[in-house]
Structures are given as C-alpha cells and as structure tokens.
C-alpha cells in the first residue's frame, strides 16, 4: 500500500510535468503564430469565395446534402473558391466559423439552418463586405438574409396526388422543427383541398439517422391502411423507401429533395426536387458582380421552376391528377392558394 502511494505521487508529478511542457510549447508557438499571423495573408481578394456551415455530415441525405451540392454547383458554374465546415450541433461554435470565413474575405457565407441566425447577426456588423445567408430563416437585417425553400408548396402538390389516388397517407419526420412541420401542414392542406376526410397520420423519429426506426414507422402506417408514405427525415428517410420496396407495389412515396427512384423503383410516384444550388447560384452571381440587393428575406417556391419542382414518374399518375397539380401550382403562384394556412 505504502509503495503504491509513493508510486502514485511520482506518476502524478511526472504526468503533470509533461503536461506543463506540452502546454508551454503550445503557448510559445501560439505567441509566435500570433505575431507572424499577418504575414501569411495572401492577396487573393479578386477570388470569389463562398463558405458553407453545414449542420451535419455533408454526405447525409436530404437537407444537409442539398446545401453541399449547392456549394459544388457554385464552384462549377461561377468558378468560386469554396469551403465548408461541419459544425457540430452546438450554436456556441457557429459564430467562430462565420468569423473565420468573413475574416478570410469570403464574400458569401451560407449557414444552412435557422439555428445559425443568432451567430450570423453577431458577426455580420464587423464584416459589412460579406453577405450572410441563412437557410430556412425569415431574417433580413443588413447583410444577413434568410433564404427559405417553402417545402409546404411541393408537399401540397403531393397531398393532392395522395388524396386523389390513395386510401390514406403517412408522414414521417425526423425532428419536430418548423421546416418539417410546415412541409406537413402543406401536405395536409393539399389533401384537404381534395378530400377533407382523407386520413393522415404523422410520426416523428426524434432522429435524422435512425433508418431502422423510419422503416418500422412506415410498416406500421402501412398496417394501419396508409398507402402513401412520405418521409422528411434526411438519412433516416431511406428506411421508408426500403419498407415500401419490401411491401411491394401499390404503395407509394415521393423522393424528397432528390431523385430516390432507385431505392424503390416500383413505389415512387415521383420526386420532389429542390435544386437549392440553382437558387443560390442565381444569388451568388449577383453577389460576385457586386450588385446583390434585397428588400426582404428570400423564399424559393414553386414559382421558381428551376429551383423547386415535383416530377411525376411516367404513367403513374392520371392526366386528371397531373392537371389538378398544374392548377394548384398556378394557384400557389397567383396567391389564391395558401399552402401554409393553419389546419382546422
């Protein structure tokens, strides 16, 4: 016992000593780095630079992927220098990422989610030459501009198709947040416009990754009699397509944000495409030219036909359904249909 104590004593000291050495080294070089920091700056002010703060892995399906693809599109079409960072889901870290990009002379930084709003506002005042765009936000304050894709509109169209062709609908969301709940409100309004008694059930997984849970949720909705099951749950969503694929023909879904036909080839009524990239390229082009200005936040909807559209698979929806969908698009653009009208 006594010997062990003694040993402890020395180990503690020994470890501490090494830690002190490491830290001293870190601090010294930090100081050195701090002094030489200015010299590193290269003059690349003529390069158009665009940064992205992604709330999750950029290769996740759905939401996080559309922003990454948008970034790649900006790189390709505008020759921009791009960069992204996956900030862990901690708002405390966002401000730093914004500041880093802005201080490196990025002209445009996209925070992909409402949660980036506070951080952008805190940073934006110090960097008037950078535009800060915030996805699914309604903000417009100086150089901080919300960019929203109104998913309730395409979901409204899907609702029309479901109510005209199916027996019941199931909606499977990742987490209960406004972008998802709004999409589901749109769907419900679409359904109600056709048949107010059409059954709709909703399940939230509480996760963006749990594909197994999504699959089970879909199977249980099928057992309850639903035949249109639509996910809005990023990577977890493909569990839904798998459930449909295994259940067989006669059960339908839509690809969300991208073409997911390959995952359940016999069960896709169509795909909702969100080419956020195209929308952002349109904005980025103006930012690069230096003539971007706006009086309000920006909202993409079905009016922006190159950004948001629903494509039905050949021969699966009748001409009558397609016609009602077209009519609804016109109504939404004209303002006679409010896809976000409160339910009940």
């Amino acid at each position: 016992m006594h010997k062990r104590r003694l040993h402890n004593f020395f180990t503690v000291k020994n470890n501490l000593w090494h830690l002190v050495l490491i830290s001293l080294g870190l601090f010294l070089s930090a100081l050195a780095g701090g002094c030489s920091g200015g010299a590193e700056k290269r003059d690349d002010s003529d390069v158009f630079k665009v940064g992205l703060l992604s709330p999750g892995p950029v290769n996740g399906q759905g939401w996080t992927q559309i922003a990454y693809e948008a970034l790649l599109k900006i790189e390709k079409e505008l020759g921009a220098q791009i960069s992204y960072v996956e900030v862990e889901q901690s708002p405390a870290l966002f401000e730093r990422a914004f500041r880093d990009y802005a201080s490196q002379g990025y002209q445009m930084v996209l925070g992909h989610g409402f949660e980036f709003q506070d951080a952008a506002l805190a940073v934006a005042k110090d960097y008037p030459d950078t535009w800060f765009f915030i996805s699914s936000s309604k903000i417009h304050e100086g150089n901080v501009v919300g960019v929203d894709s109104d998913s309730s509109q395409p979901f409204y169209l899907m609702g029309i198709a479901a109510a005209k062709m199916g027996r019941g609908a199931g909606l499977i969301g990742g987490v209960e947040i406004p972008p998802i709940t709004n999409a589901f409100i749109g769907f419900t309004n679409g359904v109600r416009s056709v048949n107010p008694d059409f059954p709709i059930s909703t399940t939230y997984l509480g996760s963006w990754t749990d594909a197994a849970a999504a699959k089970e949720a879909a199977l249980s909705m099928i057992a309850e009699g639903a035949d249109f099951i639509i996910p809005d749950a990023d990577a977890a969503g493909s569990g839904v397509y798998q459930a449909l694929n295994e259940t067989g023909p006669g059960y339908w879904s839509f690809g969300i944000y991208n073409d997911y036909t390959s995952q359940a080839p016999n069960n896709m009524m169509g795909n909702y495409f969100n080419d956020y990239g195209q929308g952002l390229v349109n904005i980025a082009r103006q930012v690069r030219a230096g003539n971007f200005e706006t009086q309000s936040n920006l909202v993409f909807g079905v009016k922006d036909r190159d950004v948001i559209w629903v494509e039905f698979e050949e021969g699966r929806a009748s001409a009558e359904v397609l016609e009602s969908v077209e009519k609804a698009i016109e109504g939404i653009i004209a303002g006679s249909i409010n896809t976000l009208a409160p339910i009940r």
């Binding site: 870190l26 601090f27 070089s29 930090a30 780095g33 701090g34 920091g37 405390a92 870290l93 730093r96 500041r99 201080s103």
Partner: peptide, 18 residues
C-alpha cells in the same frame, strides 16, 4: 490544425472557449 488552434489571437481565444 495547429494554426487553427493557436495561430492568431482569435484562434487562441476560441481554443480557450472550447
């Protein structure tokens, strides 16, 4: 990574914040 953690006053501050 090194520069990111210690390369400037701001980076150092962010490291200490974490």
């Amino acid at each position: 990574m090194w520069t990111g953690a210690f390369g400037s006053l701001n980076n150092l501050a962010e490291t200490l914040l974490k």
